[in-house]
Design a protein around this nucleic acid. Structure first.
Lengths: 120, 120
DNA sequence: CAAAAGCGTAACCACTGTGTTACGCGTTTG
DNA sequence: CAAACGCGTAACACAGTGGTTACGCTTTTG
């Protein structure tokens, strides 16, 4: 998880991750979107690769990079221990509302079902 | 948010944040829990202070540090854009279970309340 | 098959970060 | 009020990071 945290610390690398969120990109395509040199981007890609945040595949003479966001799980889990209680409760409340909404819909659906049974 | 990400990147600083999760600590108390020198810890504390993750208060000749986890919000929000859908659903399921558990407890409590009403 | 494309790596340089020891300043204490 | 405490800062050494240009390897292309 240490590698992931260090990788995230750099703004260029964070930007690359955002770019790859859409779809895989070749190294050159990524480099074109930055003002820094292509080798500099290449080294950022290496850091991301070694942290596991990114997987690369050789396609002809190009190298495609794709996101592997699963490696962020550890960091997210670590951060969760700092989520304040009332934030947690806020989430819980929001989800509780969601659950009730779902239950209301289920009830309405059941009522409809019963009416249809009567009609049948 | 860049400051926060950089602050999080160091394992010593992450450990300090975990320590402060319990309660505020004086600089010396924090330093005692590390093998590195006290000035080294002091500088880590400065990084945390300047990133806003930590607030300090002078108390006599000691300096108490307390956590301010609210500054993590931006980073958490940024990370959320990479949370896969089924991870969100996993959280929802877990919280849904929590909601039902709470409701069961409330029902049991209500039942007890009614029994006590009968006794009264 | 020679030339161009696409990328990574090497070598180098400047800057930053992290550790150390020495020191200074304000606060408590005997 | 002098000594001890608590803590930050300064000065320094050194490793790591991030940028650059030059180069080389593999794959496509005309």
């Amino acid at each position: 998880m240490d590698d992931v945290a260090a990788a995230i610390a750099d703004p260029v690398r964070r930007q690359i991750l955002v770019m790859l969120r859409e779809r895989p990109l070749a190294a050159g395509q990524i480099a074109d979107r930055f003002t820094i040199s292509r080798p500099a981007v290449s080294r950022h890609l290496r850091v991301l690769r070694e942290s596991g945040l990114v997987r690369d595949t050789l396609v002809g003479r190009r190298r495609l990079y794709e996101l592997d966001a699963s490696r962020l799980a550890g960091l997210i889990e670590w951060l969760d221990q700092f989520a304040p209680a009332d934030d947690w409760e806020r989430r819980l409340d929001a989800l509780e509302t969601e659950v009730y909404r779902t239950r209301r819909e289920r009830s309405r659906q059941n009522a409809t079902d019963r009416q249809q049974e009567n009609t049948a």
